[in-house]
């Protein structure tokens, strides 16, 4: 007998919108016209979930195993996931990455492994990923700008790769660098952030089973605007922690200074855990807009992954270590 245990970050199945319901809602919307959108919104937060063409069928080109990590929430449309991105190396507009990132050469790709680790060296994506089974992980993604998505990633747990690389006992943090490609990245001509983009995790965060090194989404290889060929996904942290197009993984003793910390340390901290109680200085983090929906929804502590990660921060002042 199959017993499905439901974690607290999972929504029950009836909270996801079945296609038929969503289609009916669309018809209602259409007949009522623009003026009625708001009033329909009163009764249903998910009323507009179909506005962007939810979940069109995609050819599944990669082999992977389905995993238990599925919040059972409506997935954000492929169009939105691949067309609405923050990837400042390609420009600060949300649609710039989709417009310009195709210029990024992702094959061949070399990831340098350095620092306090036994198996330093240069790895191809194959070398890094092939020994592991690709796995689908359907995660919420909460941007620090108070919008969110649900994305079916493909990847391998970072912990598996770290174990294979064998960090030394002095490795306390893992640091990641995004590629810097003059000529391919139109955004790096301006000093919006300091390039390369740097992100990092504490070792226990990196080893958490939720942390994913992703190479694909929606059953296919990552597109450049989503951080091809390999990127980090840390679902309980704000999206900017998910460093894209990784060219270097370093194991270090000291907490690295991340690009956003360098740019505005009062607004973006090292931990960047999703926390509805700790506001960004310029806006509240208490609620968010799920892309494809009209109404805001409350933001969940640790983006709903508290059961898996809250213990990592026990005793820490989260208002100080934001």
């Amino acid at each position: 007998m199959l017993i499905k245990s439901r974690k607290n970050w999972q929504l029950s199945e009836n909270e996801a919108t079945p296609l038929s319901t969503y289609k009916t809602r669309r018809d209602v919307l259409r007949t009522m016209g623009i003026g009625a959108v708001a009033s329909v919104g009163i009764t249903s937060a998910g009323v507009a979930s179909g506005l962007l063409g939810l979940g069109e069928a995609r050819a599944e080109s990669l082999s992977y195993i389905k995993s238990a990590y599925d919040p059972n929430e409506a997935q954000t449309s492929h169009n939105a996931v691949t067309g609405y991105n923050n990837y400042y190396e390609f420009g600060t507009g949300k649609e710039d990455p989709a417009k310009y990132a195709h210029a990024l050469t992702t094959d061949p790709w070399v990831v340098e492994v350095a620092g306090e680790v036994k198996h330093t060296g240069s790895y191809s994506i194959e070398d890094l990923i092939r020994p592991h089974q690709l796995e689908e992980r359907i995660y919420r993604m909460r941007c620090v700008e108070a919008w969110s998505m649900v994305i079916p990633w493909l990847g391998v747990p970072l912990a598996d790769i770290i174990k294979r690389l064998e960090p030394t006992s002095r490795a306390k943090y893992v640091m990641f660098h995004t590629a810097v490609r003059h000529g391919e990245m139109p955004g790096i001509g301006r000093p919006v952030l300091s390039w390369p983009y740097v992100e990092g995790l504490r070792m226990d965060e990196a080893m958490n089973p939720l942390t994913l090194l992703s190479t694909g989404l929606y059953g296919e290889d990552l597109l450049p605007q989503n951080g091809a060929p390999i990127r980090l996904v840390v679902p309980w942290k704000y999206g900017f922690k998910g460093v894209k197009s990784i060219v270097k993984i370093s194991f270090v003793e000291e907490q690295p200074q991340t690009s956003w910390e360098k740019s505005a340390s009062d607004e973006y901290g090292f931990f960047a855990n999703v926390n509805p109680q700790v506001s960004h200085p310029r806006w509240s983090q208490a609620s968010e807009r799920r892309i494809g929906e009209f109404r805001r929804r409350p933001t969940l502590m640790y983006n709903g992954y508290g059961e898996e990660v809250a213990h990592l921060y026990s005793g820490m002042d989260l208002a100080k270590y934001y």
């Binding site: 259409r30 649609e95 807009r289």
Partner: peptide, 19 residues
């Protein structure tokens, strides 16, 4: 473009039309 969006047509309002 809002009328395009409500008709589920391609539009210039990005995936986050409210913002």
């Amino acid at each position: 473009h809002w009328s395009l969006l409500l008709e589920n047509q391609p539009n210039g309002l990005t995936a986050n039309p409210i913002e």
